[in-house]
Design a protein around this nucleic acid. Structure first.
Lengths: 200, 200
DNA sequence: GTCTATAGACGGATAGAC
DNA sequence: GTCTATCCGTCTATAGAC
């Protein structure tokens, strides 16, 4: 923990505010709008300060990505221990804010090597955790893991949740209601909080 | 419509080359790299010509999006009549080039209203077609359409194919082999070109 | 149709004062 | 730590010659 705040602590730290401002601008207007000047203005400081805390803009982006990744990962690790781990993961991946940011970083990764490497490492850790959760849930219900590999189930849940968020962002909602109902029916079969058993 | 080509038409038209260059740059380096200067250079003309053919850069992006959309839609309409329509749609959506472009446009849509509206209209037409294909395939095999709504199946197939393309783009391939095998098993049940029922 | 030239805005990044 | 000032580059878009 850095710099124990003495008094009222009104300022919360410029570095932190810069990162938060970056997140907000990326979500609202896309990564291309997250320039040093705009980010600084939103954080209430001058552009030059960005380069005091971060060597380059890329470093700022990486810092933001890392922070979000760590936060997401710890939420997911928590979800594994949930009564209904699969539904917990479905809900986490249904968070529009997270999904929107992720899409921006995917696009950024297209032409910034550093971001791409970081994003890849993060995505792989997420898949590992989600697959672990699926394995636990499926095995507990005696599902044949050859026929329904946990990694497949975790990919379906995570990617569909994110895809729907991305669609909502551009105003597309066709089929979403049906998909949510379908997933609910599926999840209901693997909820540890209700007596087990495959219906049908 | 300008200048109907008479003879051999060796040059293919600057307008067309500009659009092709835009596609290529967007795919390789992201939409932010598709500037009037870079696009013009790749097309072998000067930047000012971009503004002769397109009023603004946004208009160029919209033109590119529309052209790609029409091409995709006609491929999909063809796929409906295929022996194995679901697999055909799976393959179309597994095209990395298409998926990459689509992701760039999604990101672009975040801060360009015009692009967003265009992308939404396109996405809805695609969903309609894909759902029609799924309806045909599922009904032909006597599937209970209440339990497995065609729109759900079409979303699962299309979005998973695209998600995997996006992951491959950043170097993530965990679980892909298992997912492809899983989808293959599923598709094999609904292929009209083999006697119905579960084979293999 | 295609070019040169340029206006005008904004970007990343640095030097150095306080 | 935070600021002012500045360098130098690229961007969109336009004017006007050929």
């Amino acid at each position: 923990m850095p710099a124990p705040r003495k008094h009222k602590d009104k300022d919360a730290g410029a570095r932190r505010r810069l990162m938060e401002a970056t997140v907000q601008i990326m979500r609202d207007e896309g990564y291309a709008a997250a320039t040093s000047r705009r980010v600084a203005a939103l954080a209430g400081v001058k552009a030059a300060l960005v380069y005091y805390y971060f060597d380059t803009m890329d470093d700022l982006f990486v810092a933001v990505l890392r922070a979000g990744a760590e936060s997401s990962l710890s939420e997911m690790r928590q979800a594994i221990t949930d009564d209904d781990p699969l539904r917990a993961l479905w809900l986490i991946n249904s968070d529009a804010r997270r999904a929107g940011l992720n899409t921006e970083f995917m696009a950024l990764a297209n032409h910034r090597k550093v971001i791409g490497a970081e994003l890849k490492a993060f995505a792989e850790r997420v898949r590992d955790i989600e697959t672990a959760a699926a394995t636990v849930a499926l095995r507990a219900h005696g599902v044949n893991l050859e026929e329904f590999p946990p990694v497949v189930i975790s990919m379906l849940l995570a990617q569909m949740a994110r895809s729907m968020c991305n669609e909502v962002a551009i105003g597309v909602t066709d089929g979403h209601q049906q998909m949510r109902a379908f997933v609910e029916r599926f999840l209901a079969q693997y909820d540890a909080s209700v007596p087990s058993g495959r219906t049908r």
